[in-house]
Design a protein around this nucleic acid. Structure first.
Length: 263
DNA sequence: ATGGCCAAGCCTCTTGGA
C-alpha cells in the first residue's frame, strides 16, 4: 500500500506528467494539491482510465485539492465545515484546501495549507487561523477514526534542516516559530512525520523554486509531508521523495512524496 | 552580491506561489 502526495501546480497543465508518473508508480492513492480548476472542468478521464476513483474540491485559478484512489473512496468530506459548525469555520472554507475520505480503512486527509504571504500580513494571519482550525478539525476526526494519514503541502519546513538556507534574524514565512508551533500543536494530538522515521538527513527537499537554478543547485524546502497516527506510523516500511518528475519538461515546482506499508 | 520562474485570467499586466 502506497500513499503519495504531490502539489501539481495546475492539474490541467500537469495532467500528462501526472499520468506518466502514475503509470510508472501505480500507487494506491495519490493526493494532489493546487489543482487550480473548478470541479466541472477537472480532467477526470485520464485518471479514471488508469483505474482511479476521484474525489475533487477545487475553485477557479487558485488552490484546489483532489484524491485519486484505486479502491473506492468512502465518506468523502469537503472542507472543515464537514465536521465543524459554520460559526467556527468562518471564512476558512472559502479557499478549497481540505478534502478527506476513507480508503481501505484509513482515514485520509489531503491538505493544501495556505502559503502565508509576507510575515505578519493578512495572509500570514489567515495561515495561522487556518492551522488553529485544523487542530479542531483533527481533534474531531480523531474522535471518529483511529488510523489517520494526513498529507499534503503544508507550506511549513518543520525544522531548519528542511530548508537549504536556515533563516537568520529576519523571519521567513514557512519557518517562523508561530507556524511551527501551530503545526506541532496539531501533531501533539498523536501524529508523527513519516519521512523522519526513515531519514534523518538534511537537504531532503520536496519543493524547489522555479527561479535561480534552485533544483540543480538543490536549494529547496521540505514542505510536503505525511503525518500518521501511531499504529500506521509503526507499520510504515518506507517514505521517500521521488525527485525524478521535478527534472521533467514543464514540471511542477513540487515533487511526489510516497509513504509505504506492507500489502 | 543579486536575481534569475511559472500558471491563470480575459489577458500584453496582475495576482499568487513559498
Amino acid at each position: 500500500m502506497k500513499i503519495a502526495t504531490w502539489n501539481v501546480n495546475s492539474i490541467r497543465t500537469r495532467q500528462g506528467l501526472v499520468c506518466d508518473w502514475l503509470r510508472a508508480n501505480p500507487v494506491e492513492v495519490l493526493c494532489v494539491q493546487e489543482t487550480k480548476v473548478i470541479d466541472a472542468d477537472f480532467p477526470r478521464d485520464p485518471f479514471e482510465s488508469l483505474g482511479y476513483h476521484l474525489a475533487v474540491s477545487g475553485q477557479k485559478s487558485y488552490n484546489g485539492v483532489a484524491i485519486f484512489s484505486r479502491l473506492p473512496l468512502e465518506e468523502v468530506d469537503i472542507g472543515f465545515g464537514a465536521l465543524l459548525p459554520p460559526e467556527q469555520v468562518g471564512n476558512l472554507d472559502e479557499q478549497k484546501r481540505a478534502i478527506a475520505a476513507t480508503v481501505g480503512g484509513i482515514r485520509l486527509i489531503n491538505l493544501y495549507v495556505p502559503n502565508g504571504g509576507e510575515y505578519n500580513s493578512d495572509k500570514y494571519d489567515y495561515k495561522l487561523r487556518w492551522l488553529n482550525l485544523l487542530y479542531d478539525y483533527l481533534q474531531h476526526t480523531l474522535d471518529k477514526y483511529k488510523d489517520l494519514c494526513i498529507c499534503g503541502d503544508f507550506n511549513i519546513a518543520p525544522d531548519d534542516r528542511d530548508i537549504h538556507t536556515p533563516p537568520g534574524k529576519t523571519p521567513v514565512v514557512g519557518t517562523t516559530a508561530a507556524e511551527r508551533e501551530a503545526l506541532e500543536r496539531c501533531l501533539g494530538l498523536g501524529l508523527a512525520d513519516a519521512f523522519r522515521k526513515f531519514n534523518q538527513e538534511d537537504k531532503q527537499y520536496s519543493w524547489w523554486d522555479y527561479r535561480a537554478g534552485a533544483f540543480p543547485r538543490n536549494r529547496g524546502w521540505r514542505i510536503d509531508h505525511h503525518y500518521l497516527t501511531p499504529e500506521l506510523y509503526q507499520r510504515a516500511t518506507d517514505c521517500t521523495i521521488d525527485r525524478e518528475p521535478r527534472q521533467w519538461t514543464k514540471p511542477s515546482d513540487h515533487t511526489p512524496v510516497i509513504v509505504e506499508w506492507p500489502d
